[in-house]
Design a protein around this nucleic acid. Sequence first.
DNA 1: GTCTATACATGGATAGAC
DNA 2: GTCTATCCATGTATAGAC
Lengths: 199, 199
Amino acid sequence: MQQSTEEKILAAAAKVFMEKGMAGARMQDIADEAGINKALLHYYFRSKEKLFDEIFKEVSGQLLPRLNQIIESDISLFDKIWAFCQEYISRMVENPYLPLFIVEETNKQQGAFLERHLGNKRLRLDKLAQQVQQEVARGTIKPIHPLELFLTIISMCAFPFLGKPLLQHMSGMNDDMFNAMMEARKSEVPKFIINAIKK
Amino acid sequence: MQQSTEEKILAAAAKVFMEKGMAGARMQDIADEAGINKALLHYYFRSKEKLFDEIFKEVSGQLLPRLNQIIESDISLFDKIWAFCQEYISRMVENPYLPLFIVEETNKQQGAFLERHLGNKRLRLDKLAQQVQQEVARGTIKPIHPLELFLTIISMCAFPFLGKPLLQHMSGMNDDMFNAMMEARKSEVPKFIINAIKK
DNA sequence: GTCTATACATGGATAGAC
DNA sequence: GTCTATCCATGTATAGAC
């Protein structure tokens, strides 16, 4: 193991917060998961909110850089769409709670929450936007607003994880079938999008 | 007003549960919103869980029939995609909390929750699937699994509401701009999808 | 640092008067 | 039906021994 108490707490908190959300998570759950008691949680992190902030910062801080790296790279627009879908879906398959966690907390937390956590760490779409405009001017793709394209890409990649229970209920697919579908979507989604925008 | 106490409670509960979710909602919040006290909530509905179930049943029971009506209608596949996006996005603009509410609770509630509430009320995709296969056979659209097509449609319609806070943070758009974008997406989404699948 | 015990507040639920 | 008062369990947080 060789894991410090602080690390154990952070790992346990990440698991519990991601499964149950800030409102549904109990400090007792986290203590149990970490194999310690509640008092020790407050010793390391003063309050539930502080602990939650730590987890949210860590989680969002891991995801965004990887996506930025792709979005800002020098590859062609189509390759970029392809790489983004691959990377995004792969991350979510590894951690299926992530999309709901991010979506739920960004919607529920109050006021300046996003500013506090992501203030400097927003996705940098400038380069992507530039490429889109270039390709439009060159006549290789139909006119489209870069932000709309980005929204569509992320919608197709992320939503299936959010709608998974409903989808499974509707179609009777089990977890293996779902994962197989998402594996296929790593290439189906970019193909679909490129078909939609190319001239 | 002319609203019975039970109706006031249901309206208040719907508002509070949709904003805060089952875990985050407080009976006190609902009582305040309804202008009554907690005891009366328990008089009408025995427990928080029963009240929640009532709301979830009502909400999901209103949405699905409207969507089924479109999905099972006799119009052409392309018209159907068009009508579905129009109707779905319109519903969500009216009630922006709905997507998160459904997604959150279907993910968080335990075990047979979906069976209990939607057991008989699932979306009926048979007709849509038939049409897709016909068009594929006819050579008018590229081969695509009907369920995948449906998943893509609903992803593009629903996700923007879920990712709204992140999107606004990233792009600096305000609520009016967001609503204008969704208004435009009522036609942009079906156009995009049809472009992607048509031969 | 880690534990047990406990304080203090909140939330769901009930009792009983009106 | 509707209210006030209250019970009881749970949840966050702290005190203090080791």
